[in-house]
C-alpha cells in the first residue's frame, strides 16, 4: 500500500470532523442566529449555501489544474487519481451551485435562469468538466487517458478567471463580487455565517477529495490484484 494513502487514511478523519463541525455551526448561524437582509429579507439565507458551493467548485477546479500540471511534470499515477477525483467533485459542486443559484434567482431577480455572462461562463465550466470526465471513461490506455485529461484540464482553466471577473467586466444581472478591491460589502452579522459555511465547505471538499482519491486508487489496485491487465496497468513502481 502506498505511503501517501496510508497517511491519508490516518489524517482524513480530522478534515471530516472539522467540516461537519464548521457546517453545523455555520448552518445554525445562517438559518437561526443571523438577521434577515434589509432588501431581500429571509431569502438572503440562500447566500450561505450558494456562495460556498460556488467558490468550492472553483477551488476544486484550481486543485484539478494544479494536479494536472504536477502530473504532466512528475507522471505520478496517484496525482492523476487526485485530479480525477477533483474533477468529479468540481462537477458536483458546480451543478449544485447552479441549482441553488436558480432557486435564489427566482425570488430576487424574478427569473430562474438568464444567459448573462456569469451564468453562461459558469455553465461552460460544467460542460468542460463533463467533457473531461467523458474523455476519461472512453480511453482504455490509462497512461494516455491521464495525459489527455491533464491537457484538457489545463486548457479549461482559462474559464476560471472569466467566471470570476465576468461580473466586473461585463453588464450582467448577477451582482458584482462582495469581496473585492472596493472592500467587503457584507455587514458582520451576515458575514460571519458566510465565512463559517465557506470554511466548512472547503474542509468538506478536502475530505471528499481524500476519500475519492482513495476510492479511485483502491479500485485500480484491486483490478491490478485480480491480475487483470497486470502488464499494462497504471500503478507506479513504488506500489508493487
Amino acid at each position: 500500500m502506498n505511503k501517501v494513502i496510508r497517511r491519508i487514511q490516518r489524517y482524513q478523519g480530522w478534515f471530516g470532523a472539522g467540516a461537519a463541525g464548521c457546517l453545523l455551526v455555520g448552518l445554525y448561524l445562517g438559518l437561526i442566529a443571523s438577521p434577515p437582509d434589509y432588501y431581500q429579507g429571509e431569502v438572503v439565507r440562500i447566500m450561505y449555501i450558494h456562495v460556498p458551493l460556488a467558490h468550492t467548485s472553483l477551488l476544486a477546479y484550481t486543485v484539478l489544474f494544479g494536479g494536472s500540471v504536477w502530473y504532466l511534470w512528475k507522471r505520478d499515477p496517484l496525482v492523476d487519481n487526485m485530479c480525477h477525483a477533483a474533477a468529479g467533485l468540481s462537477a458536483v459542486f458546480t451543478s449544485l451551485a447552479l441549482f441553488t443559484g436558480m432557486i435564489w434567482g427566482k425570488p430576487t431577480w424574478n427569473t430562474w435562469w438568464t444567459w448573462d455572462a456569469r451564468l453562461t461562463s459558469f455553465t461552460v465550466l460544467l460542460l468542460i468538466l463533463i467533457g473531461y470526465l467523458m474523455l476519461r471513461t472512453f480511453i482504455d490506455d490509462p497512461e494516455r487517458e491521464a495525459r489527455f485529461a491533464a491537457v484538457v484540464a489545463i486548457i479549461g482553466f482559462v474559464d476560471l478567471p472569466i467566471v470570476h471577473f465576468s461580473v466586473e467586466w461585463w453588464r450582467t444581472l448577477h451582482q458584482p463580487q462582495s469581496f473585492s478591491l472596493r472592500g467587503v460589502s457584507i455587514s458582520s452579522d451576515l458575514l460571519f455565517p458566510l465565512i463559517m459555511m465557506s470554511i466548512g465547505m472547503s474542509l468538506l471538499f478536502t475530505y471528499m477529495l481524500l476519500v475519492r482519491t482513495q476510492m479511485l486508487y483502491l479500485t485500480n489496485l484491486l483490478h491490478a490484484k485480480k491480475g487483470r491487465l497486470l502488464g499494462q496497468f497504471h500503478l507506479s513502481k513504488a506500489d508493487s
Binding site: 432588501y39 431581500q40 431577480w109 458584482p176 472596493r182 455587514s187
Partner: peptide, 26 residues
Amino acid sequence: NLIMAKHSEDYMPMELKRAGVELPKK
C-alpha cells in the same frame, strides 16, 4: 411585461440600514 430586479452586492440587517450605514459597492 418582464422586469428583472438587479440587486447590489451589499448585505446588512434592517437596523444598520435604518441607522444610515453604507457599505462599499460598485
